[in-house]
Design a protein around this nucleic acid. Structure first.
Lengths: 269, 269
DNA sequence: TATTTCCCGGGAAATA
DNA sequence: TATTTCCCGGGAAATA
């Protein structure tokens, strides 16, 4: 892939499409950066004429924001020439084919592919495809299809595999991604899926526990589960109370009476 | 398609695969048959050596049972030679291509196609495909794919269209199918989908209302909706009571106390 | 507004 | 047991 170099953060323009950054997520990444440094460089495009600066962000909005929060002035970035986007996509494809990659590495590759693709062709979303999209497909000489099938056919994998890698790439917390690196879990798809589906808060705890247990996932999850019940009982209680009141408000007199009788409160009128 | 002729019900063997008949559904069909006759013949295969009789049922278990319930001795059936199954599939395909069909007719065609296909290749289900299935696909010269994609490519429609037609064919109550015939609703996909997703009980009421309103769906659904709240309040009350007790049983003392306080029952200890 | 084609999430069952 | 490839259901957004 193109060369990674250090560039001033002030010179990076963040396009509208990438503006929506979750501050919590960025904060979590800052913590990870303090501890382990920036593991993956962000991806930018050289755009000397852009309003915000000489570069435009392609991938890594959260990492960029995290570095800003740490008052860093510079960041490692892969600089991709606008005309080279297509060849970057090709490189990713080839890497995916060639190497013996772990599941998590493949997920990151697909994610980067997705980011570069979106920066070139627009945001990937559901819905009936526009003509623009079809046009692109025709130029490429592929059958008419959305991003999912495009990536699948290009990478030589099924759309289901893309679906899973996407899920891992998009929902696995960066803390966990870092914590998992080098352990067997990095190549354990089922485990990664399970982790990715947990709440972000739980994922952060799982990451800490995983490090403490030296990569033993079972032990680590044991701690997280054990912690959970006592961790946020208020939220749970609130939920129960709310549910009770919600149903109560909709119930008729007969139902209310029956309920009170069942719980031994049938006395008052 | 092959010729339809009248055959003795006693001579039809019902294979294990089709044995599971919902008696309610069959009863509903008998009512429809009394009123309108048997609208679609069942499909059978000529199997002189079979244990149950000279024919084996391919499609129409509910219709067959309905005729049995009416003490009929014979039934109209399309007799398909075992060797002709493939050509029947082809015929359905061609019909689907050629004619100006309503949505509901297309759904019925896809359903029949599915039935014949299942009788030849085995039940369609989820899961990683077996070798047998792949073998079949290779013989056909098609790319390896499940039933859904097979049907889609053969019919010249997308898998999403197959999905919707399947939904309509499998979940639209036969009463409604009959009631809709000849009205604009028969070619209104959105309406059919909406109807198909309703509870069977409601579908039956909708069918009655639709006839009463001369095919005016909006008016008919107005009646059904209006009837519903007073129709089964007991079931709803039961559900609410159950939900209340369920949550109550899991709640701790503090939550229970808070709840009782909210509803003005904080008195007793 | 009705239809279509995407994406996403989940579950089942055979394979490795 | 882990992975893969089906089917199914649902929602979004452009098209007709």
């Amino acid at each position: 892939m193109a060369v990674s170099k250090t560039i001033p953060i002030a010179k990076i323009h963040v396009p509208e499409r990438l503006r929506a950054v979750e501050e919590d997520h960025a904060l979590a990444i800052s913590a990870s950066i303090v501890e382990h440094g920036l593991l993956n460089p962000v991806t930018v495009r050289a755009t000397p004429a852009a309003k915000g600066g000489a570069y435009t962000l392609v991938a890594g909005a959260h990492r960029l924001r995290a570095m800003e929060l740490l008052d860093e002035m510079e960041i490692d970035a892969v600089v991709v020439d606008a005309d080279q986007q297509e060849s970057v996509l090709l490189e990713i494809t080839e890497n995916l084919f060639r190497n013996e990659l772990s599941v998590i590495d493949r997920a990151v590759f697909v994610q980067t592919y997705r980011d570069v693709w979106e920066s070139k062709y627009g945001k990937i979303s559901s819905g009936r495809p526009e003509n623009r999209c079809n046009l692109h497909q025709l130029i490429e000489g592929e059958a008419k299809a959305g991003f999912s099938r495009h990536v699948a056919s290009r990478m030589g994998i099924s759309t289901d595999v893309v679906k899973r890698l996407n899920l891992i790439a998009q929902r696995l917390h960066s803390d966990l991604r870092a914590a998992v690196r080098g352990t067997p879990v990095a190549d354990n798809q089922a485990a990664l899926l399970k982790l990715a589906k947990m709440e972000p808060q739980e994922q952060r705890r799982a990451a800490i526990a995983l490090r403490a247990e030296g990569g033993d996932l079972k032990k680590a999850l044991g701690h997280v589960k054990a912690v959970r019940p006592s961790e946020k009982p208020e939220a749970k209680r609130d939920g129960m109370l709310k549910a009770l009141l919600e149903i109560w408000s909709k119930a008729d007199d007969a139902t209310r009476k029956a309920f009170l009788a069942e719980i031994g409160r049938e006395d008052a009128a």
